[in-house]
Amino acid sequence: MKLAINGTTRTFDGDPRTTLLDFLRRDCDLTGTKKGCDHGQCGACTVLVNGQRINSCLTLTVMHEDDEITTIEGLGTPQDMHPLQSAFVDHDGYQCGYCTPGQICSAKAMLDEAKAGWPSVVTEDLTAEIDLSGDEIRERMSGNLCRCGAYSNIIDAITDVKEAAR
C-alpha cells in the first residue's frame, strides 16, 4: 500500500503491527516525530493526517492507505522555518526539545481548527465565532505535555503567530 509523507509517496508492506509513529521514525527516517508514551497520553507523536492532528502512536500504518501525512520535517527546515517554528525559537517555547515537534504540529492544526470554527470546552457560547484567547489556546494545546514546563512561552509563541496571521 502507498501513502504520502510530506509530499513523497512511500510504500508500506511491513508488519501490520507497525504504528504510523514507528513507520515514520524507523522506516522513513523521520525521527522528528517523537515517541514519548506510545499510548496517546503525551502528544509528542502528533502529526497531521490529511490536515488533522492525531497521535501517530495510536494508529497503524496499514490503516493509512492513500492518506497524506505531514510531519514536523514537512513544515520547515532549520534554514527555512515555518512561522510557528521561528516563534518557538524566539519565545523559547521549549527546553529539552523532545515534545517540541509534537507541540508545533499540534499548534498548526489547532489554528486551522479554530479557523474552521471548531469550539473547545472553554468556549462560552458554542454558537458564536471562535475568539482564540489565551485560555482557548491553553485548553486546545493541553494534549501536548511539556515536562520542562515551557507552557507559558508556548502560548506566547502561538499567540504571536495567530496575531501575525490576522
Binding site: G43, R53, I54, S106, A109, E113, P119, S142, N144
Partner: peptide
Amino acid sequence: WPVLSRAILSGASGQLRNK
C-alpha cells in the same frame, strides 16, 4: 444538543478526539 458538544470537548485531547 449542546450538552453533547460540551461532554465530548471535555474529554481527551484534540488529537484523540480527531480519531
